[in-house]
């Protein structure tokens, strides 16, 4: 299996100090991998390091075999990484249509925003195209953020707690969609998630993160073990 994303020995953090102390995460082509852990262990820091918002202080990152450690976030996105940040990152004053168009710079090689692909998964967006992003509900914004990251068919989706603040029925729907994107379209996924059911539906395996270190790797059977998972996630 070829690797899509390979993070090795990642050390990163803020002016206040390091948050990640040598994290290693691998995502193979077509794989959906989860990162789980308690609040504040560094999950978002890991995702921001992966897309390039935070520089690596040590370690390396490769995308499809190419070293991208020194590349800024925009370059990484144009290589084909779609990012859905915690809090969704919707542009409040852009319309839904414009928010979707903003996904069009991801995956430069393709350069052809496929609105029909997005409407296929999120049909409600079609009726909302002229509405400002800020006027959508939390669940709708989560779906818009996924649609935006998806519109140019990236090779890899980075998702940071997409279920956060979304009502249960919608969470289930988003889970189905991500799972379908991964299985039928072959888009690789790295997912940070605290919602166990959602994570189980989407991911094939998982890393547990604690205090900026990977503490274990869970295979498909272990992922199904609610008790084991609860131990890693519970506050």
């Amino acid at each position: 299996m070829t690797s899509v994303l390979s993070i090795q020995g990642a050390v990163a953090g803020y002016a206040t100090g390091n948050v990640l102390h040598g994290v290693g995460v691998e995502v193979a082509e077509g794989e959906a991998v989860a990162v789980v852990g308690r609040n504040g262990v560094g999950k978002t820091t890991l995702m921001r390091t992966a897309i390039g918002q935070l520089p690596l202080r040590a370690g390396s990152i490769a995308f499809k075999g190419t070293d991208i450690t020194a590349e800024p976030a925009d370059r990484r996105a144009r290589r084909g990484i779609g990012y859905v940040p915690q809090g969704r990152g919707i542009f409040p004053h852009l319309t839904v249509r414009e928010n979707l168009l903003m996904g069009g710079f991801i995956n430069e090689a393709r350069r052809n925003p496929d609105f029909e692909l997005v409407f296929g998964y999120f049909p409600f967006l079609r009726e909302r195209l002229g509405q400002r992003g800020a006027t959508l509900s939390g669940g709708q914004q989560a779906m818009l953020a996924i649609g935006r990251a998806l519109i140019n068919e990236p090779a890899l989706l980075l998702l940071d707690e997409p279920s956060d603040g979304v009502q249960p029925s919608i969470i289930e729907e988003i889970g189905e969609i991500l799972s379908d994107l991964n299985r039928t379209r072959g888009i690789s996924v790295l997912l940070v998630e605290q919602n166990i059911g959602f994570m189980q539906r989407v991911a094939g395996r998982a890393y547990t993160l604690d205090k900026g270190r990977v503490t274990s790797e869970l295979g498909p059977e272990e992922i199904a073990d609610e008790r084991l998972l609860a131990e890693h996630i519970a506050v």
Binding site: G89, F91, E98, F105
Partner: peptide
């Protein structure tokens, strides 16, 4: 307009 509203996000989208 996107960069004005959220420069970090705009950059992360390419």
């Amino acid at each position: 307009r996107a960069a004005m509203q959220d420069a970090t996000m705009a950059k992360s989208l390419g």
